[in-house]
């Protein structure tokens, strides 16, 4: 392969990493609670805003390296504060109700969070690319790589592997899997699915906010970020097959690479690329790459 394509691929994978964080959070929440959370993108936007604000504050106190910590602190903060609160007050009520209502409740939450952001952070764009600057670049064979992009890809791989291991090996992971596969069995086993829901939802919030936080050094943070992100996350989750972690990873790579190819070859089509991929995939595999659905017993 010509080395001219390497930057395209690295850009694509870094993009894929950011998309993956938010899409895997969405898909995780869907697989546990069977809810498509329209407000999921707002957590991404919040993650971006809050990490910029905390990052600036920490940079002022202890220098830019300390500012890096904001990228991890803020998603944790958002997940701990908002995760249980929203699950307990709003989502809990929607379980077992028609899909239209579930989607609308989260749409209501989306509207509230969007304006709350405008009220708190204003409508001027924020930008804070210090984290990207201080990490510098690496030169290999005459090609320049942004270290920040390499770290993004690495983190995405770690999160994917970590999630899989958590679900397979840890106690809480096994509880989540039981609740996902068989709600009734979970109840007869005496599993407290209420706690599993809070945990899974908060984890989903964390992943979205992490995506936003890590994206903040690479983009301007402005109103509309949440609404753009959620449709992208929907597309990626649908391509992968709703509820599928590996599916979300593969779909994120597919979409990331397509988007970066579009930027190089046909920039005006970059925003359509994810949806075209989605339409193409769902035309052939109606339930996504890794998704499936069984016949109903009659």
């Amino acid at each position: 392969m010509s080395s001219a394509y390497i930057p395209l691929i690295v850009d694509g994978l870094a993009d894929a990493a950011l998309i993956f964080f938010v899409a895997v959070g969405l898909t995780l929440v869907f697989s546990v609670m069977r809810i498509l959370n329209v407000a999921h993108g707002s957590f991404y936007a919040l993650g971006a805003y809050i990490s910029v604000v905390i990052g600036l504050w920490l940079t002022g106190r202890g220098g830019p390296v300390l500012g890096l910590a904001a990228l991890v602190i803020s998603p944790v903060l958002i997940a701990v504060l908002l995760g249980p609160l929203i699950e307990l007050t709003l989502l809990r009520w929607t379980y077992g109700r028609p899909e239209a209502l579930q989607i609308l409740v989260t749409f209501g939450l989306f509207l509230i969070l969007e304006d709350a952001q405008k009220l708190i952070f204003g409508v001027q764009p924020y930008s804070q690319d210090t984290p990207m600057q201080i990490l510098g670049i690496t030169r290999i064979g005459g090609i320049v790589y942004l270290n920040y992009q390499l770290i993004l890809v690495l983190m995405a791989v770690l999160v994917a592997v970590g999630l899989r291991l958590m679900l397979k090996r840890t106690r809480i992971g096994k509880l989540i899997v039981t609740v996902v596969t068989d709600q009734e069995l979970a109840q007869t086993l005496g599993i407290d699915s209420s706690r599993v829901f809070i945990l899974a939802f908060s984890l989903g919030v964390f992943l979205a906010a992490l995506g936003g936080a890590l994206a903040s050094p690479t983009v301007g943070v402005a109103p509309g970020l949440g609404s753009e992100t959620i449709v992208l996350a929907f597309a990626v989750a649908a391509i992968g097959g709703l509820g599928q972690i590996e599916g979300a990873a593969l779909a994120a790579i597919l979409v990331g690479l397509t988007r970066s190819a579009a930027i190089y070859f046909a920039p005006e089509f970059q925003p359509v690329a994810p949806y075209l991929v989605m339409l193409a995939v769902l035309l052939v595999r109606p339930f996504g790459l890794f998704g499936s659905i069984g016949l109903r017993r009659i």
Binding site: L36, F234, A238, P271, V272, Y275, L279, P286
Partner: peptide, 15 residues
């Protein structure tokens, strides 16, 4: 049906 119907409509409208 269901979520897939919702999301495909979303995708087409976004295109």
């Amino acid at each position: 049906r269901a979520i897939f119907f919702a999301m495909l409509n979303l995708a087409v409208s976004m295109v």
